[in-house]
Design a binder for these strands. Structure first.
Lengths: 159, 159
DNA sequence: CCCATATCGTTATGATCATAACGATATGGG
DNA sequence: CCCATATCGTTATGATCATAACGATATGGG
């Protein structure tokens, strides 16, 4: 099973190679679909100076309230180095503020500024529109099915 | 319908805001799912020095044969500036070669080197494994359903 | 208490993306 | 033929990602 280079016929392998279709691969489809979704959102929020990644950080903070930078990153699927840069840019725009956690000198608590809190409230409706546009080619039942299946593939981390 | 700020009650909007859940948004789910799929593939091909984006370029070239850099980019969903850099890195690794198109001085024809042709053939089986892993939490029928729905959302460009 | 271990944020590096602007070349209609 | 228009590849800029390595701080078991 291991060392034998079966003279039998590598036919299976060759078939797999020629039958392979990039367009049918989950990874490629996800990348293309995300590009489309991301573009739909970006077109609506770019005037407000936000990107989809920045939006997700603000939206999560809106949902869950202020929390440490690290935890915020985990809840939106960003590595510590990554969430750091995103928070930094949002701070520079005056949308977020940070302060040391009173009970843990390692942690940095991230919170909205007044401007940020107001902005995210205005942007969420735009994202709802954007999601509808992304899913427009599916009927409601198919949309629910897709969201449900994607949720199981994504295995989002609970915090 | 347009200028009237209905005193009636912005209740609908407030409900939409509080009912909003990032985890149920198609864009966020796609980003998380792609991260997972991308990681699964990267773990298998990183030793060979390739990234998922580079893999998709090589796989498309394997499927369709040599073509212009611009068209190759369109067929994997990369902008001209982007496909350029990916092809450049693959050239540096000796996996791809480019030459001017004989019939059109604007075009750059991209093709495999011997080493590249051999590598992609060895990598495709790894990607098939990776796809299976990404979809492991779904049964075969659900997998087909997800791929079909994603394909309709992605609206991949035909070349 | 002490110390191995984990967590948090940071720095650095390199790849992926989108966008805008540009020169060079093709093309097609008048 | 000529020229408006499109296409191709490039340059530049800025944001998003993953990873490795690191110092600082918490924590929990002995």
């Amino acid at each position: 099973m291991s060392t034998e280079k079966a003279a039998v016929a590598p036919h299976g392998v060759e078939d797999a190679l020629s039958a392979y279709s990039l367009d049918g691969q989950i990874g490629f489809l996800l990348r293309c679909a995300y590009q489309r979704a991301s573009g739909n959102l970006l077109r609506r929020i770019a005037d407000h100076g936000l990107t989809p990644a920045q939006f997700s950080v603000m939206a999560r903070l809106h949902e869950r309230g202020s929390m440490s930078q690290n935890r915020l990153g985990r809840l939106v699927g960003m590595e510590p180095a990554n969430i750091r840069d995103v928070v930094l840019r949002l701070k520079r725009r005056g949308l977020l503020e940070t302060r040391p956690a009173p009970d843990d000198a390692r942690r940095l608590v991230v919170d909205f500024s007044e401007q940020g809190r107001s902005l995210i409230a205005r942007l969420i409706p735009l994202e709802i529109e954007s999601s509808a546009q992304t899913l427009a080619s599916l009927n409601p039942q198919e949309q629910q099915m897709l969201l449900q299946l994607l949720g199981r593939v994504a295995e989002i981390e609970e915090g």
